[in-house]
Amino acid sequence: MPPFSPSAVFTEWGLSPVLFVLVVWAAGLYLYAVWRLRDRGDRWPVGRTLAFVGGGLGTFFFATSSGLAAYDTTLLSVHMVQHMLLSMVVPVMCALGAPVTLALRTLPARPRRVLLAVLHSRVAKVLTFAPLTLAVYVISPWALYFTGWYDATLRSDLLHELMHVHLVAVGALFFTPILGVDPVPGRVSHPFRLLMLMLTLPFHAFLGVTVMGQTTLIGGDWYPSLKAQLPWLPDPMADQHLAGGILWGSGDLIALMMFVTLFVQWVRASQQEARREDRRLDRLARAEERTRDRDGAQEREQATTVPGAPRR
Results as ranks from 00 to 15, higher is better:
Met1Gly: 10
Phe4Met: 06
Val9Gln: 03
Gly14Met: 10
Leu15Met: 11
Leu15Tyr: 15
Pro17Arg: 05
Leu19Thr: 09
Val23Cys: 06
Trp25Tyr: 14
Ala26Gly: 04
Gly28Phe: 09
Trp35Gly: 09
Arg36Lys: 15
Asp42Trp: 11
Arg43Ala: 15
Arg43Cys: 06
Trp44Ala: 00
Trp44Cys: 04
Pro45Cys: 05
Pro45Gln: 08
Ala51Lys: 00
Val53Leu: 07
Val53Glu: 02
Leu57Ile: 11
Leu57Val: 05
Phe62Thr: 08
Ala63Gly: 07
Ser66Leu: 11
Leu68His: 00
Thr73Tyr: 09
Val78Asn: 00
Gln82Met: 06
Val90Leu: 05
Val90Ile: 06
Val92Met: 00
Met93His: 07
Gly97Arg: 00
Gly97Thr: 04
Gly97Leu: 04
Val100Arg: 02
Pro108Gln: 14
Arg110Tyr: 09
Arg112Phe: 01
Leu116Arg: 08
Leu116Asn: 11
Leu116Gly: 08
Lys125Arg: 12
Leu127Asp: 04
Thr133Val: 10
Leu134Lys: 04
Tyr137Val: 00
Tyr137Gln: 02
Ile139Cys: 09
Ser140Met: 14
Ala143Lys: 07
Phe146Cys: 08
Gly148Val: 14
Asp151Met: 12
Leu154Glu: 02
Asp157Tyr: 08
Glu161Lys: 11
Phe174Asn: 01
Pro177Phe: 01
Gly180Cys: 01
Val181Ile: 07
Val181Ser: 06
Gly186Ile: 00
Arg187Asn: 06
Val188Tyr: 04
Ser189Asp: 15
Ser189Met: 12
Pro191Asp: 10
Pro202Leu: 03
Pro202Met: 06
Ala205Lys: 01
Leu207Ser: 05
Gly208Val: 00
Thr210Gly: 07
Met212Asn: 03
Gln214Ala: 12
Gly220Glu: 00
Pro224Ser: 08
Lys227Cys: 05
Ala228Glu: 07
Ala228Ile: 06
Gln229Trp: 08
Trp232Met: 06
Leu233His: 02
Pro234Asp: 04
Gln240Arg: 04
Gln240Ile: 01
Ala255Trp: 06
Ala255Gly: 12
Ala255Pro: 03
Leu256Gly: 10
Phe259Pro: 05
Ser270Thr: 12
Gln272Leu: 13
Ala274Pro: 01
Arg275His: 09
Asp282Thr: 13
Arg286Met: 12
Arg286Cys: 13
Ala287Asn: 15
Glu288Cys: 12
Thr291Ala: 10
Arg292Pro: 03
Gly296Leu: 15
Ala297Met: 10
Ala297His: 10
Glu299Pro: 05
Ala303Cys: 10
Ala303Gln: 14
Thr305Ile: 12
Val306Lys: 04
Pro310Trp: 14
Arg311Thr: 15
